[in-house]
Design a protein around this nucleic acid. Structure first.
Lengths: 140, 140
DNA sequence: TATTGTTATACTCTATAACTATA
DNA sequence: TATAGTTATAGAGTATAACAATA
């Protein structure tokens, strides 16, 4: 296995672990990981259903259902755009914003054991490398 | 945001990107990411249903259904253990093994743009840091 | 005509509870 | 009694196709 493959495999294994941790945190709050992603995107701005679908890579009909369930739980609100009668903007309720903050804090806390294993002096460098890699694929 | 938080966020964003890429590859082969994980685990050894469930963090009943569908597609095979009549061992068929290899290659190929953004000299160091972090949480 | 969003439908993923078979 | 696995059930996630409303 060459260096490129070795790094790719490390990335994939890291992904599985981080996903497992986040999925568990989501479940502890009675949410799926997808719901957490949607809440996270909406937490600090109003977003159209279509944009939410694009950002998550899901179909707009799927997003419609996700928003339905989050609305039913009082975490999100739908608002019609005054500028374009077709558009629905999705907004986090207070309860939704509070929940996002909680989950974000839990994520920081529960991923800490992994992050803390990286020598402090190298943390900035590692974050920068990951940011560089993400920027290269348009996720920066 | 301190250094620890910044690194955590980079990890989470990396996770979302890698997951998106792998989910797309899985879908192109008419599989879910979960199915790919199961096939990957079984690809080079026989594994009990209970162990598969433990490894993936899923319930054994969920695993039973996943194996059902993979068997129906000719990707996996169930074999009763000769040593313990309760145990079912799951084995990859030839077609299943071929598919795993294909998907693994596609993963390497499609994650390459991200990996290639890391300067070659730093790739080993990055892989080592990730491995260290994973080892610290028992995923090494 | 094109775009935005929802609904109808069908399948997969998932867990819980109840069950069968074996140890 | 305990363990391995399946089945029944119910709900969430997902995409495709068809639809209504608006531009």
């Amino acid at each position: 296995m060459d260096r490129e493959e070795r790094l790719t495999e490390a990335l994939v294994r890291t992904t599985f672990h981080v996903t497992a941790v986040m999925t568990r945190i989501a479940a502890e709050h009675d949410l799926s990981l997808t719901q957490v992603r949607v809440l996270g995107i909406v937490s600090d701005r109003r977003v159209r259903v279509t944009d939410l679908a694009a950002r998550t890579g899901l179909d707009k009909s799927t997003m419609s259902g996700l928003v339905d369930r989050a609305v039913a739980r009082g975490l999100l609100r739908r608002e019609r755009s005054p500028h374009d009668g077709r558009v629905v903007e999705v907004v986090a309720t207070e309860a939704g914003a509070r929940l996002v903050a909680e989950i974000r804090a839990a994520g920081m806390r529960e991923l800490a054991p992994m992050v803390d294993a990286v020598p402090p002096a190298e943390r900035v460098g590692l974050a920068r490398l990951l940011d560089t890699a993400l920027a290269a694929v348009g996720q920066g």
